[in-house]
Nucleic acid binder design. Structure first.
Lengths: 140, 140
DNA sequence: TTGTCAATTAGCAAATATTGTTGATAAGGT
DNA sequence: ACCTTATCAACAATATTTGCTAATTGACAA
């Protein structure tokens, strides 16, 4: 993901406005390695801008995803998670707390079998490892 | 997935009741290769049992999943899909219509990198190929 | 600096998918 | 056939995300 300043310029360049609410969200996303939900970002944004609405958070996140600056992930935890890391990578998801971790690995063998591949226009390939993270395991 | 008759016995053996509604759902699931949603099954079940409720469909599907007779899949299409095929397999998902196809392939190199694997208790590994299916491609 | 205009905001309603609740009903062992 | 208990159907509730709208604000140009 680009820096908050660069994102402001990008928004302007694409006919969007660079508002204080958006800058606030850009800064929260910048450098985060967790995969926050819209609600999480909303909660954090409210600490700095009490009047911000959840609707605005969703709109900004959707805009960022449309511009390819963040990834909108559905990891099966009940709500979308947003990832400022847009490089090709995979995920390790905890079935207990829902937290996700990036996995930087290349799986060259992961290809659609020839029979099925012929008529399918492939867009993306995702690998999800599910299980329990250290935190949840030591909790019991 | 077991046959409708066997599932009826299994339900009784596990202290559940083998009702007409459940037999109807068992028969709909038996042998299907698509990955129906609860709503789809509900619509089909109503053709044979107009009084059946959506709640009963959800309950029966959840019971079947708890017994390991079907798989409850979240393929990022907005709702759960149910798969009577419980063998280890992966999926090809259309981002336009949401339909899913089974992929029987073994990806032996898909493993958690050693650094991350140490503290994680792995339960399952899923590979999802996303793109557009033939039907949706030829539609345009 | 200020005016103009379209994009954005906040707040609320609505849509979608799933689960909780409850009185009535019926399955299944005895 | 009877009795216990799970299940049923209908409705309400929850959770997440999107739709709508009047008022506001940013961006650009004069």
């Amino acid at each position: 993901m680009k820096s908050p300043v660069e994102l402001g310029e990008l928004f302007r360049a694409t006919g969007r406005k660079n508002t204080a609410q958006r800058q606030c969200i850009f800064e929260l996303l910048h450098g985060t390695t967790v995969h926050p939900t819209a609600e999480t970002i909303y909660a954090e944004a409210r600490d700095k801008m009490p009047s911000i609405s959840l609707r605005t958070v969703y709109q900004t996140l959707n805009d960022l995803a449309a511009l390819g600056e963040i990834q909108q992930l559905d990891l099966g935890t009940g709500s979308f998670r947003f990832d400022p890391n847009v490089d090709a990578h995979h995920h390790l998801v905890c079935i207990e707390c829902g937290n996700a971790e990036d996995i930087y690995a290349d799986f060259p063998d992961v290809q659609i079998p020839r029979a099925a591949a012929k008529d399918f226009e492939l867009t993306s390939t995702e690998v999800v490892f599910r299980g329990r993270c250290v935190t949840c395991r030591t909790k019991d």
